[in-house]
Design a protein around this nucleic acid. Structure first.
Length: 596
RNA sequence: GCCCCGGUAGCUCAGUUGGAUAGAGCAACGGCCUUCUAAGCCGUGGGUCAGGGGUUCGAAUCCUCUCCGGGGCGCCA
């Protein structure tokens, strides 16, 4: 992978190999039990006084070796193979083994950055494992709102990170194009259409009231004129009363759905239904695409019924004896697998539930042979996790292959005030409005700045501000500054000799330079940790720290000095910095501008 | 009632999976532009890691109890 033989792989791995060799040597000598598998723990030191990397290995193994941590540490250090990477190894504190790296080890990292370019930080530790990431999957009953935005940014970033560390990633959106909510949308569209035809009636309490429903109704009216019109009295006749009239809004809307279906007939009903579905889905697609969120597949819930997957899943559950009938409905005995209560899969009216589709969907995912299946859900669905896992176990699949990542809501603040939102009344801030207000970059970055299971306060004023308070500008500014330095270089009639810089990296002996180089060398470790832990915020935080190291350096030293060796070396360093910032922002879906 | 997530500086949050003296940004205060973009830098102050108990060489981190905040407990999706 590396263009330079002195840095075949990240420095951390190389050190881990040295420790492994030492452990193996002590095992051969009988100091350590030979049968014990040893997990090499290495971490960056918090304090440079403790070297570059530290291992707690001696403390972890001292019991097995029946010796004091520091004594064992001595033996481990004595057994370490020599390496040109390491200048010094110290034992400190209760038994830490501290590694001090040679400057050449860091220079190798810099050369690696420029050699690998946009691939620096990528790795193959995922070993080509196939991972499916399903995210957003909002019902196509309305536009995406800011809550979906967080799932979109988070899911897309997790997928990109996994790909960066060598997984084969399949990004998927589960389209809930079946079920009652969609019927409610279809009826809402139809009623708006009737309104445009001149019919008058009161709109159901449970219907979708957003403006976009009017728009779809208008499309219907434009294309069909009065051809689909029915008398309002006829539509509402004998339908159970709505809530405002003292009735039940659920019964009212269900009655309306049945009536509209029978009045229009299957074909025409389906046309209205699909118009609503496709219009909104197109809208969602465009939104996500413009947000830099791309999918490999849009998976239709309806297709699960049409392909017989739902039926097949239910048959498999029946065959394995995990379902029973009660009260006219078919139940899945999820309590056998740790769920709180059993769940209905087929209603007493014969319709399968959403859960039945989801069982079939997850069965289908595993049938497609993924090594790992990741679902990104809103945290309000957390109660749903045990039953899906229960179903997979009942089907004889490995439920541990499924990871459900829960994303908490984002609460918007404007002028220090919480922005009130309510889906019921149709008053919510859409993702599109958010992007328009704060821009894609700030939206993407702010969404992944926090741990996903953390409630997030999204400060709109901060995201918009073009000031040092705004972390996104801070990072982008560092990138732009490097580009600006190179523009200055040209204006001064000079040019950068990269090879000369590479030869003079030992001239970078300032503390600020040392710290910046160390930060750059951490990048591959950060990408790996962020990917494997599904924690994009680690990368976001790292980029801020890196930008900070750069700005500090920028203020302390002049890059365009007369001394060509030093100048080329410094330009080499800041060029590497620019590259890492660009790579990191790229993984977060944020642009890296050359000027601001 | 049961379950899930959270509680760390005035505010918003990190804390490398149990490590060394708990960090950053913002806000507050004091400095730095005739020099590559001041959208920047430097310095100062600020903590009972919600609280009690436990586990061990070592706990913000793990186990337990209590308190507080948010969410979930449909033949909705």
């Amino acid at each position: 992978m590396g263009a330079f033989p002195d840095c075949p792989e990240p420095m951390k791995q190389q050190l881990a190999q040295l420790l492994s060799a030492a452990v193996a040597a002590l095992q051969a000598d009988g100091v350590l039990p030979a049968d014990q598998a040893v997990d090499i723990q290495l971490e960056r030191t918090r304090d440079r006084k403790h070297g570059d990397f530290a291992s707690n290995l001696a403390m972890v193994l001292c019991k097995a070796a029946r010796s004091k941590p520091r004594d064992l540490a001595e033996k481990l250090v004595a057994a370490l193979p020599s390496s040109e990477l390491v200048t010094r190894v110290e034992i400190a504190g209760p038994g830490f083994i501290n590694f001090f790296l040679a400057p050449a080890a860091y220079h190798a990292v810099l050369r690696q950055v420029l050699a690998d370019g946009e691939n620096f930080g990528r790795s193959d530790i995922g070993a080509g494992k196939r991972v499916q990431v399903e995210f957003v999957s909002a019902n196509p009953t309305g536009p995406l709102h800011v809550g979906h935005g967080r799932g979109a940014a988070y899911g897309a970033t997790v997928a990109d990170l996994l790909e960066a560390v060598g997984h084969q990633v399949h990004r998927e959106y589960y389209v809930n194009d079946a079920g009652r909510q969609m019927d409610i949308l279809a009826v809402s569209v139809y009623l708006r259409y009737l309104d445009l035809c001149g019919e008058s009636f009161s709109f159901p309490a449970n219907g979708y009231k957003g403006d976009y429903v009017w728009d779809i109704g208008a499309t219907l009216h434009r294309t069909h004129g009065d051809a689909l019109r029915h008398d309002a009295g006829e539509v509402f006749r004998d339908v159970p009363a709505d809530e405002p009239q003292g009735g039940d809004k659920e019964a009212h809307i269900d009655g309306l759905i049945a009536r509209v279906k029978s009045l229009l007939g299957d074909a025409r009903y389906r046309e209205v239904f699909d118009l609503g579905l496709n219009t909104i889905l197109d809208n969602i697609r465009r939104d996500l695409e413009a947000f830099g969120v791309h999918y490999d597949e849009w998976f239709s819930e309806r297709s699960l019924t049409e392909s017989g997957a739902v039926e097949r899943a239910l048959e498999r559950l029946k065959a394995s004896g995990h379902v029973y009938e009660k009260g006219g409905a078919l139940w899945f005995r999820s309590t056998d697998f740790g769920d709180e209560k059993d769940r209905v899969v087929v209603r007493d009216n014969g319709q399968t539930t959403y859960f039945a589709s989801d069982i079939a969907y997850h069965m289908n995912k595993l049938e497609r042979g993924y090594d790992r299946v990741i679902d990104v859900w809103g945290a309000d669905h957390h109660g749903y996790v045990p039953r899906v896992k229960a179903a997979l176990t009942a089907l004889g699949d490995d439920a541990d292959k499924l990871d459900v990542l829960l994303v908490q809501f984002a609460i918007l603040y404007r002028g220090g005030q919480k922005v009130q939102m309510s889906t019921r009344s149709g008053e919510f801030v859409t993702l599109r409005e958010l992007r328009k207000e704060v821009g894609n970059d700030a939206a993407r970055f702010f969404y992944v700045m926090r741990k996903c299971e953390q409630h997030m306060d999204f400060d709109l004023d901060l995201a918009k501000s073009r000031s040092n308070e705004n972390p996104i500008y801070y990072i982008q500014y560092a990138h732009a500054r490097v580009a600006s330095v190179f523009r200055q270089l040209e204006e001064k009639g000079m040019s950068w000799d990269a090879d000369n810089g590479a030869r003079h990296l030992d001239r970078l002996d300032e503390t600020h330079e040392d710290q910046l180089i160390v930060a750059l060398s951490r990048y591959p470790e950060i990408v790996e940790a962020a990917a494997l832990n599904h924690e994009p915020h680690q990368l976001a935080h790292f980029l801020r720290e890196l930008a900070n190291e750069f700005h500090t350096y920028y203020n302390a030293h002049q890059f365009l000095v007369d001394d060509a060796g030093l100048r080329d070396a410094r330009l080499y360093l800041i060029q590497a910095t620019r590259q890492v910032i660009a790579n990191g922002l790229g993984l977060l879906g944020v642009s890296a501008p050359d000027s601001m």
